[in-house]
């Protein structure tokens, strides 16, 4: 469903963030993208919906090629891709409900959205989603009154109300404590399964990735160095992805998690 062909990105500073990425994500598959900081994970995700303009290559979403779309067509394409952010990226001074409904902006005209007169079907869907993530009673609270985990749930609702085919998830658990991290990951994978969504999840916590996803892609210096199941991630493979020095740090970080035994 999503197909990347030889995707490259070179920043103006000369840094080559992506060096010819090729990737196929079939419908309904949840995929974790791991790799050290600066490997290009964030850039890759942002190149797909063109928050970052790729320098070369092609991005195919079903039968549309995204890299050459004009502004209007790009907006239509972006509606098909929900995005979830590391620091939640909720508009903090808006209410929870406004934040969720902002996911419908691509479908609603300017004045309607400006006056907050969303169609009843959108409002009902927002209620349903908030109920699903257990935040219905918070609907009229302002986003900055929420805790980290609650904010991320709102962020998930905002992405899902777009009615997307694909979720782009950028470090969803980086700012959360271990327990909330797992809850959020479980929620995302469950929702993807319920709705048959494909997802690309950037994550630097390898153990967490292994727990929840059937396919892991390892990125290093802008190149794919691993693509396979979570159990294929041997220490050698991890060394290849993270490099010898970084790997030590990663081990220490996930030492307490019981899943590390499975990997070793």
């Amino acid at each position: 469903m999503l197909r990347l062909k030889n995707l490259t990105k070179t920043y103006r500073t000369g840094d080559q963030a992506l060096k010819g990425i090729g990737l196929d994500v079939p419908k309904g598959q949840v995929l974790a993208l791991i790799g050290p900081s600066g490997a290009g994970k964030s850039t890759l995700i942002r190149c797909i919906n063109r928050l970052v303009e790729p320098t070369g290559g092609e991005v195919w979403l079903d039968d549309t090629e995204l890299t050459h779309l004009g502004a209007g067509a790009l907006r239509k394409a972006r509606r098909e891709m929900g995005m979830i952010f590391q620091e939640y990226a909720l508009v903090e001074r808006l209410t929870v409900m406004e934040n969720v409904l902002s996911g419908r902006l691509g479908y609603v005209g300017f004045w309607r959205s400006f006056l907050r007169r969303f169609p009843q079907s959108d409002v009902d869907e927002a209620f349903r989603l908030l109920d699903r993530v257990g935040l219905l009673h918070m609907a009229d609270k302002r986003a900055d009154e929420l805790s980290g985990g609650q904010r991320q749930r709102v962020g998930i609702c905002r992405a899902l109300i777009q009615n997307p085919k694909l979720l782009l998830v950028d470090e969803p658990t980086a700012s959360l404590d271990p327990k909330t991290s797992r809850q959020i990951m479980r929620l995302i994978t469950e929702l993807c399964a319920e709705r048959g969504l494909a997802a690309i999840i950037n994550i630097h916590d390898v153990a967490l990735a292994q727990m929840f996803v059937p396919r892991v892609v390892g990125l290093r210096f802008g190149e794919i160095v691993y693509d396979g199941g979570p159990n294929g991630l041997t220490p050698d493979k991890l060394t290849e992805i993270y490099g010898a020095e970084d790997w030590e740090a990663t081990i220490r970080k996930v030492e307490d998690e019981e899943e590390i035994e499975a990997a070793e």
Partner: peptide, 12 residues
Amino acid sequence: TQVEAISATGAS
């Protein structure tokens, strides 16, 4: 990033 998040929904 808040602006980015709104652009990512396909908003004009």
